[in-house]
Design a protein around this nucleic acid. Structure first.
Lengths: 158, 158
DNA sequence: CAGTATCCCCCCTGATACTG
DNA sequence: CAGTATCAGGGGGGATACTG
């Protein structure tokens, strides 16, 4: 986790989230889980991560309640790692990261792949941010000191 | 960044996002920026981060186009760090993390603080995940192999 | 205040070898 | 296949001192 200070008790929800899934590999593991990975080797090959590190991360994530293990579905004697309800709750986080990259980090002609419908090649979910009054907000609306001020600046291409 | 392997060219948008803001401190720095921090010392005191580490992170984030520097607004000779449009685009990511923590990581009676309206003590934004056809999805809807199947499992208390 | 420069330790990380 | 055990290294991270 690279951390000497736990963020768990900071009181800030963002910090607490990062305390659980803020390390370098966790979200990628979880991403692969959303993409269907369940077996140790699936995670390992998909990520190019060392076995030791993966085992450690998986153990942490199970401990934290993100994954749970269950018997292999194909009858073999091995375990599978499946997301718990808490883990599935991270779906918006993954989608938000994907969306940000697609909006801000990719050149228009570059290849993208993850969490897309493989048949149709389209993203399967989009995010919307809404203010408490239910009004939809563009991500480019400026956020200053806890108050959303609708500025409607130039928006990235949908 | 703790990384030996850059994820930038993986083709996966999630990986690319993490390549930019996936390290231990970046998202916390960005969170504080959304909360109004602009000065070096504000970040440093708010995070309890070492000056060297903070300077390094800030430099990286400016390089990556998340922050930009500008002259101090109070007339002093110092720089301020403000989010670029790209940086402000991370708002949904922060909100998603906050929301996940609040839904899954906090006991009902625990204190929370971040990105809330300080006067009224309420969250200023909520996220919604929508499928491409515009249908709203609960975060507990199960995501399997790139297809969202509406399962409507038990939902965490709103 | 806003950093830069050092020192140093810890632990993450990766590779390899081994077990069931 | 699914891990565990062990080892070596490297860079992140904290603390401190120094500068403009």
């Amino acid at each position: 986790m690279v951390k000497r200070v736990s963020l768990w008790n900071e009181g800030c929800p963002v910090a607490r989230s990062l305390d659980v899934i803020g390390d370098w590999w966790s979200l990628l593991i979880i991403r692969d889980a959303f993409d269907g990975a369940r077996r140790f080797s699936e995670f390992q090959q998909g990520l190019g991560i060392g076995k030791g590190v993966l085992a450690s991360r998986l153990r942490d994530l199970v401990e934290r309640g993100i994954f749970e293990t269950c018997p292999a579905s194909d009858g073999t004697a091995y375990r599978e790692y499946v997301l718990t309800a808490t883990g599935r709750g991270l779906f918006p986080v993954i989608v938000a990261l994907r969306q940000w990259a697609e909006d801000c980090l990719f050149a228009p002609d570059e290849h993208r792949s993850s969490l897309v419908d493989k048949e149709r090649g389209v993203s399967i979910a989009r995010l919307e941010v809404r203010s408490v009054d239910g009004r939809a907000l563009a991500w480019s609306d400026t956020q200053v000191r806890g108050v959303v001020t609708s500025k409607r600046k130039t928006r990235a291409p949908a």
